[in-house]
C-alpha cells in the first residue's frame, strides 16, 4: 500500500543542517493501523508528511499502491492527495466555515452537484456521530467534536489512507479513547489504512497492528504490536512499553524504602514478565502450591494486546530458598522473564 524507500530528509537551518529522516525504509500494508512512536523531534511528523509530500524527501522514493508519487506532476499529485486523508493535533478546521462547509470543502469544485455533496456530508456526519452539529462553527465545538469534524472532512473523498499526526494529543484521556475507538471502527468498516503518529504508547496499545519506533530520524525498531510489547529490543522501546504499566514503580518504592517492600530473610521480591502468549495460565498459584511458597502480589499489570494477554507482575515470595530458586527455574522454563529485585539477604 505505502512504501518508503531510502527516505532522507534534511532541513537547512541557521544552526546548520538538521537530519529529520535518515535512510528510512518502510512498508505499510493495506488495511492496517500502523503506529509511529518516538520522542519529540524524532522525525515522526516529517516522515508522515513525506507520505503525501507535504514535505519532499531530500532523497528516496515514495510509492502508494505501486505508483511512485515522488515523480508525479503537480496536478497528478493533487489528485493523489485527495485519496490520502490527513488529521492533525490542532484539527485545522476553517473557522469561517461551519461544520457542513468544512466537510464539504474537499468535495467542492469537483463537478459534484449540490445534492450529491449534501448527501455525502450527511453520511460522513452520521459516520462520526455529529449529525446534530451540522450548522455549528468550530469555535462552538469541543476538542473531540472538532477532531470528529476533521476526520469526516479527511474522509470526504473516500481515501484509502488516513494519516494522523498526534490527532489525540490535544485531547483528554476519555476523549482520546473515543476518537481512537472511532478510528478503529473506520478501519474495520471502510478498510482504510491508518498511519498514526503518537508519543504515547497507550495510544499504540489501544489500536495499532504494527509499530515502528523512531529516534533521531531513524527507524530503530519495528514489529507487530504483541512482539513490541512482549520483547522490546531497544532501550527506548522498553521505556515506552514500561510507560504503559505501573510495574516499574517498584524501583521507586525500594528507593524510598517503603514499608511494603521491606523484606525479611527468606523473602524475595521478584518481577515476572510474560513474554510469550502464556499469561493466562495460573502460574502464581501453581508455584505457590507446588513449591510451598507464599506469594504476595504488589503490582500486577496484565493487559490484552489484540487478543493476547501480556504484562507482568511484581510479587514478594517467601519460603525455603531452594524452593524459591526451583520456582524461578520453572517459570523461566515456561518462558516467563524473571528478575530478582531483592533476594532477602540484602534486606
Amino acid at each position: 500500500m505505502i512504501r518508503l524507500e531510502n527516505i532522507d530528509k534534511s532541513f537547512e537551518g541557521e544552526s546548520g543542517t538538521v537530519v529529520a529522516a535518515n535512510n528510512v525504509n518502510l512498508h505499510i500494508e493495506k488495511g492496517k493501523i500502523f503506529g509511529i512512536i518516538g520522542f519529540s523531534g524524532a522525525g515522526k511528523s516529517t516522515l508522515v508528511r513525506c507520505i503525501n509530500l507535504l514535505e519532499r524527501p531530500t532523497k528516496g522514493k515514495v510509492y502508494i499502491d505501486g505508483t511512485e508519487i515522488t515523480s508525479l506532476s503537480k496536478k497528478e499529485l493533487r489528485a493523489k492527495r485527495k485519496k490520502i486523508g490527513m488529521i492533525f493535533q490542532h484539527f485545522n478546521l476553517f473557522a469561517s466555515r461551519n461544520v457542513y462547509q468544512n466537510i464539504a470543502y474537499p468535495l467542492k469544485y469537483r463537478g459534484k452537484s449540490k445534492s450529491e455533496i449534501n448527501k455525502k456530508v450527511n453520511e460522513l456526519l452520521e459516520l462520526v456521530g455529529l449529525t446534530d452539529k451540522i450548522h455549528a462553527y468550530p469555535s462552538q465545538l469541543s476538542g473531540g467534536q472538532k477532531q470528529r469534524v476533521a476526520i469526516a472532512r479527511a474522509l470526504a473523498n473516500d481515501p484509502e489512507i488516513l494519516l494522523s499526526d498526534e490527532a489525540t494529543s490535544a485531547l483528554d484521556p476519555q476523549t482520546t479513547k473515543s476518537i481512537l475507538k472511532l478510528l478503529k471502527e473506520l478501519n474495520a468498516k471502510l478498510g482504510i489504512t491508518i498511519v498514526l503518529i503518537t508519543h504515547e504508547m497507550q495510544v499504540v496499545k489501544e489500536i495499532c497492528d504494527q509499530v515502528v519506533v523512531m529516534e533521531n530520524g531513524e527507524v530503530i525498531e519495528q514489529g507487530d504490536l504483541f512482539n513490541i510489547f512482549a520483547a522490546p529490543r531497544e532501550g527506548i522501546t522498553r521505556e515506552f512499553v514500561e510507560s504503559t504499566s505501573n510495574l516499574s514503580k517498584i524501583y521507586e518504592l525500594i528507593e524510598e524504602k517503603r514499608a511494603v517492600v521491606q523484606t525479611k530473610a527468606g523473602e524475595f521480591i521478584i518481577r515476572l514478565r510474560y513474554l510469550k502468549r502464556n499469561a493466562s495460565e495460573s502460574l502464581i498459584s501453581y508455584i505457590s502450591r507446588n513449591y510451598n511458597l507464599d506469594a504476595n502480589i504488589i503490582f500486577g499489570n496484565i493487559e490484552l494486546i489484540g487478543d493476547n494477554p501480556i504484562g507482568g507482575l511484581v510479587a514478594i515470595v517467601s519460603g525455603k530458598e531452594e524452593d524459591i530458586y526451583a520456582a524461578i527455574r520453572f517459570l523461566k522454563d515456561k518462558g516467563v522473564g524473571v528478575e530478582v529485585i531483592n533476594n532477602g539477604v540484602l534486606a
Partner: peptide
C-alpha cells in the same frame, strides 16, 4: 490551515 488545504489536494 494552509497545510490542511494542500493535503486535501
Amino acid at each position: 490551515l494552509v497545510e490542511a488545504a494542500i493535503a486535501m489536494g
